[in-house]
Design a protein around this nucleic acid. Sequence first.
DNA 1: GCTGAAAACTTAATAAG
DNA 2: CTTATTAAGTTTTCAGC
Lengths: 156, 156
Amino acid sequence: MNLDQTDRSILYLVQKENRTELSTGDIAEQVGVSSSTVSNRLRRLRESGIIVDYKPEIDYEKAGIPHHVLFVCTAPIGDLKRVATDALNTPNVVNVRELLSGTRNLLVEVVGVQTTDVERVAEDLDALGIDIETSEIVREEYSRPLGHFGSQLSGE
Amino acid sequence: MNLDQTDRSILYLVQKENRTELSTGDIAEQVGVSSSTVSNRLRRLRESGIIVDYKPEIDYEKAGIPHHVLFVCTAPIGDLKRVATDALNTPNVVNVRELLSGTRNLLVEVVGVQTTDVERVAEDLDALGIDIETSEIVREEYSRPLGHFGSQLSGE
DNA sequence: GCTGAAAACTTAATAAG
DNA sequence: CTTATTAAGTTTTCAGC
């Protein structure tokens, strides 16, 4: 699917603003098309898989889940896909990333109420044949929209 | 703020399902309260900062942005907060994570249309006093809702 | 492809328990 | 705290361009 500047502007805005507080009318006003067009474009972006979905960002600490750890791991390359899926299905694991690298090729993000939750995940990953190289405490995370999508918007 | 089982179930469902395709009525049905209650709970969860906001997950490759790299970096600990903010404001940077560690304490996620986009970010980070230890190509990323929130839902 | 208008749907505010 | 009702707002559909 080829994106035109209307698609790119819409993508920029839905990344920049909280989606639930940004109506198609609001987007339409800033992009300079009708709200029906925004609705159609957003549907096409979803259907083509460019917008995968909308996820809430959870502040785990405020939610009473104080432990937040990133395991930097090495998994056998041939098994990486399977092992990544298994890791994701381990309780308390919230995110897994595959990296294209011989070692340190899997990042596993874990949250938990108790330190024992995190320790149990470490054991489970070990049982899956995943080597934990290092474990890091996550302090803070920040995201930003990609400016590339918004370059033609007035005022941007 | 203390979460009860209703809050946890709602949190689980909004993580699990695409938020824009899940109305408060749908949630209400599964949790066993009225849609007004779901609406009230969701507002409280947002106001208390537990739900930070709803972000679209973008498939950069499908969007015509083929390069996706994770820089594993070391930044001076005293400056970490400032440096993380500066890194986030660098064009083509979409995500920054601070880790609680002496070295390799900053993960910077970069996307770009050209390899030169990524190279330019590497130079910009260097100019900010950030050491790039390794750079990894991101193949795939998977997320999962935290089961802890959903343990009391029927059928889960 | 786009738009405006109508229909369908969703959320938030209210009143009451 | 909860819920049902209702008003306000939003999204989608559709005929016409």
